[in-house]
Deep mutational scan, measured.
Amino acid sequence: KTYTFRVRIVDEETGEEKEIEVTAKSEEEAKKAAEELKKKYPNLKVELE
C-alpha cells in the first residue's frame, strides 16, 4: 500500500505557492521526504497535508 501526500511549498521570497505530490510507503517516509525538501530549499515553507 502506498500513501500519496500533498506537500504545499511556499517560496518565502516570491510568495509563490506550489503543490507537489509525494508518494510514500508510510507517513514516516513522507515526513522524511518533506524534511529533505526543507534541506534542499531552505527558504521554502514546506507543509505536509
Rank of each mutant, 00 (worst) to 15 (best):
K1V: 09
K1I: 11
K1A: 10
K1E: 12
K1W: 04
K1Y: 05
T2E: 14
T2L: 14
T2D: 15
T2W: 14
T2I: 11
T2Y: 13
Y3H: 12
Y3L: 08
Y3R: 09
Y3D: 05
Y3C: 14
Y3V: 10
Y3A: 04
Y3I: 10
T4F: 09
T4C: 15
T4S: 06
T4V: 12
T4D: 04
T4G: 04
T4H: 11
T4R: 10
F5N: 00
F5S: 01
F5Y: 10
F5K: 01
F5A: 03
F5C: 07
F5M: 05
R6I: 15
R6W: 12
R6A: 04
R6K: 14
R6C: 14
V7L: 10
V7E: 00
V7K: 00
V7I: 15
V7F: 12
V7P: 00
R8H: 06
R8N: 03
R8P: 01
R8Y: 11
R8G: 02
R8C: 10
R8W: 14
I9F: 11
I9V: 08
I9S: 00
I9W: 15
I9A: 02
I9K: 00
V10A: 02
V10H: 06
V10S: 05
V10W: 13
V10M: 08
V10E: 02
V10N: 02
D11I: 05
D11R: 01
D11W: 04
D11A: 01
D11C: 12
D11K: 01
D11S: 03
D11N: 12
E12D: 09
E12A: 09
E12G: 06
E12V: 12
E12W: 10
E12I: 13
E13N: 11
E13H: 10
E13V: 11
E13Y: 07
E13K: 10
E13T: 12
E13C: 14
T14V: 01
T14S: 06
T14D: 01
T14C: 04
T14L: 03
T14G: 02
G15D: 02
G15T: 01
G15M: 04
G15W: 02
G15K: 03
G15L: 04
G15I: 00
E16L: 09
E16T: 07
E16R: 05
E16S: 04
E16Q: 08
E16C: 14
E16Y: 09
E17R: 07
E17Y: 14
E17S: 13
E17W: 15
K18D: 05
K18F: 15
K18Q: 12
E19Q: 11
E19P: 01
E19N: 08
E19R: 11
E19W: 15
E19C: 15
I20M: 06
I20Q: 01
I20L: 07
I20P: 00
I20H: 02
I20Y: 11
E21Q: 11
E21C: 14
E21G: 02
E21V: 14
E21R: 05
E21F: 15
E21A: 06
E21L: 15
V22L: 13
V22S: 01
V22E: 00
V22W: 06
T23H: 13
T23P: 04
T23A: 07
T23Y: 14
T23I: 13
T23G: 03
T23S: 11
T23M: 10
T23Q: 12
A24S: 05
A24F: 14
A24Y: 11
A24Q: 01
A24R: 03
A24E: 02
K25T: 13
K25M: 12
K25A: 14
K25P: 08
K25N: 14
K25Q: 12
S26H: 03
S26M: 01
S26G: 04
S26C: 07
S26T: 13
E27W: 15
E27G: 04
E27H: 12
E27P: 09
E27S: 06
E28S: 10
E28L: 10
E28M: 08
E28R: 07
E28F: 08
E28H: 09
E28Y: 08
E29C: 11
E29M: 05
E29Q: 07
E29G: 05
E29D: 12
E29K: 02
E29F: 03
E29V: 03
E29I: 03
E29N: 03
E29A: 08
A30S: 02
A30M: 08
A30E: 00
A30F: 10
A30Y: 07
A30I: 07
K31Y: 13
K31S: 07
K31M: 13
K31I: 13
K31C: 14
K31G: 05
K32R: 11
K32S: 08
K32F: 10
A33W: 15
A33P: 00
A33S: 05
A33K: 14
A33R: 10
A33D: 02
A34I: 15
A34T: 10
A34H: 07
A34Q: 07
A34G: 04
E35V: 07
E35A: 09
E35S: 07
E36D: 11
E36M: 10
E36Q: 10
E36C: 13
L37W: 08
L37C: 06
L37H: 02
L37N: 01
L37S: 01
L37G: 01
L37F: 08
L37Q: 02
K38A: 11
K38H: 05
K38N: 05
K38P: 01
K38M: 14
K38R: 13
K38Q: 13
K38V: 12
K38Y: 11
K38I: 12
K39C: 06
K39N: 06
K39R: 11
K39G: 06
K39I: 11
K39F: 07
K39P: 02
K39M: 09
K40Y: 07
K40L: 12
K40T: 06
K40M: 14
K40A: 08
K40N: 05
K40Q: 11
Y41H: 05
Y41T: 03
Y41C: 04
Y41W: 09
Y41V: 02
Y41L: 03
Y41N: 04
P42F: 05
P42R: 04
P42W: 03
P42V: 04
P42T: 05
P42H: 04
P42Y: 03
N43H: 12
N43F: 09
N43M: 06
N43T: 09
N43D: 06
N43S: 07
L44N: 05
L44Q: 06
L44S: 12
L44A: 14
K45G: 04
K45H: 07
K45Q: 08
K45P: 03
K45D: 04
K45Y: 08
K45L: 12
V46F: 12
V46L: 09
V46R: 03
V46G: 04
V46P: 03
V46T: 03
V46Y: 06
E47N: 10
E47M: 13
E47S: 12
E47H: 13
E47D: 10
L48I: 13
L48A: 05
L48D: 03
L48F: 13
L48Y: 13
L48K: 05
L48R: 05
L48G: 05
E49S: 13
E49T: 12
E49M: 14
E49Y: 04
E49H: 13
E49Q: 13
